[in-house]
Design a binder for these strands. Structure first.
Lengths: 248, 248
DNA sequence: CGTCTGATTGAGCTCAGTCAAATTGGGTGG
DNA sequence: CCACCCAATTTGACTGAGCTCAATCAGACG
């Protein structure tokens, strides 16, 4: 089966698709061997919950493929996504015993997990891991702060444009020939997930997407396949400085 | 002068008021000596800008006393606070050359600074610093995510209550005798700063504070001195689980 | 072909924003 | 000590972006 195949492929760190960006990116051969001893893969289907907030968490790990989301929920059911986990992103916090957020597989998901205690031991002996984790955590903090500006100060239209920019930036295959600022991708999120990301209702998300389509900022094929004919235009709509050269 | 005195007092790491919580908290005597060699103090008055976003940043440092804020500004002037820096909090990012945010002294401020390059060198040789910085960054990330829930999903009233809770939790001297959930503190932020923190306008902040006062959730003496007669009540208003035992 | 989930669209309402006018309170100079 | 000034804050009236409730639509799957 495809699933078995894909697992088999990623079984070896040497072939791992995220080896250049994950927590283990800085590790040398020896360190990788140690990690390899304590690692194991877990797969989740779209919609499945990886962990519930408050649950005991005895592993940490990296997203290998697929997308997961970190969400917080209030007693009355209001929910806010607080993290979007893409391949190579790290899940879990060394030194903490319980999950602070719900982690949900947004798409089918493969994770490379390490039992927490051995990982922590290894980390204390392996500065390369801690270094890389610090770097990644600082990046996440920057992303979170960017996101706070979106949540606190942007309009619904700007929020949608911002989210599309973010996804485009990561997921993008520039469509067509030559030098162009056209970008094409598939939305990995439902309208509801987008709403939870942006602090909106799903109706507002839908309306704003329709409006952006009507205004020619985006093109849709089906509900999920998106074409951005002019990335600069989208960045403008997002309220971001469409400043520096190519979006990189 | 008082200023000189307070500087003199904190000149030695041994007497430093934040030594247990700052980046240097894990350092041993030897490591502290090295840090001491490259450190220097800087003072800012309330309202002064410490750094502008985009500026070259050749130092990093810790807040020793006072409060600073990290803010992001859009071209049209909308601003969002993305970090509130209290004593012991770290400013700057090792490995980055320019400031990503505006840093502004919200009150009079004393910082313990390190030139960036020597600090980075020291950090690569001193796991204790990197360890502590990782810990602090993970805490900040948690705080940022908490804040994202506030920005994305809470009502104006809940936002104000949340902010007051946060300040109360840190700044608090429980007022009066015996076991009680009464808390007293001075607001270190103007209405405008609170608005920037919470993604509101200053008028809305003012209105909601008035409403909370009217409803007996808080008491005001002057504009800044706040009494929380019942901390649990406030936590309820914040929409947080007023769950676990004493707020700790 | 019915069903079910996700998405779109509409109508009306509400909370928070905008614009504008008081009010407060601390600081200053006479 | 008092009159005045200025910045911060409060309050009011009105507006509108985004929410709620509800109906409809589209595509996937059995």
């Amino acid at each position: 089966m495809l699933n078995d195949r894909s697992l088999a492929v990623s079984q070896e760190c040497a072939n791992c698709p995220i080896k250049h960006r994950a927590v283990c990116a800085r590790c040398d051969g020896n360190e990788l061997e140690r990690l390899e001893e304590i690692k194991y893969y877990r797969k989740f289907e779209a919609g499945q919950t990886v962990i519930w907030s408050g649950d005991r968490m005895d592993f940490v790990g990296s997203v290998v493929s697929g997308i997961a989301s970190l969400t917080q929920t209030m007693e009355d059911g209001r929910t806010q996504m607080v993290g979007l986990l893409l391949p190579s992103d790290f899940v879990g916090r060394p030194g903490r015993g319980t999950a602070a957020y719900d982690v949900v597989a947004t798409t089918d998901l493969v994770m490379c997990c390490f039992r927490k205690t051995p990982f922590e031991d290894l980390m204390s002996k392996t500065p390369h891991i801690a270094q890389r984790l610090l770097e990644m955590t600082l990046d996440e903090l920057d992303a979170a702060r960017e996101w706070m500006l979106v949540l606190g100060r942007k309009t619904a239209r700007e929020k949608i444009a911002s989210l599309l920019s973010i996804i485009a930036r990561r997921n993008a295959t520039s469509g067509g020939t030559g030098f162009k600022n056209t970008v094409v991708f598939d939305l990995p999120l439902t309208r509801e997930a987008m709403a939870d990301y942006l602090g909106l209702t799903l109706e507002t998300v839908s309306r704003q997407i329709s409006a952006l389509k009507r205004d020619g900022v985006i093109e849709l094929e089906g509900k999920r396949h998106v074409t951005i004919p002019d990335m600069y235009r989208l960045l403008e709509e997002a309220g971001d400085d469409a400043d520096g050269g190519v979006f990189a």
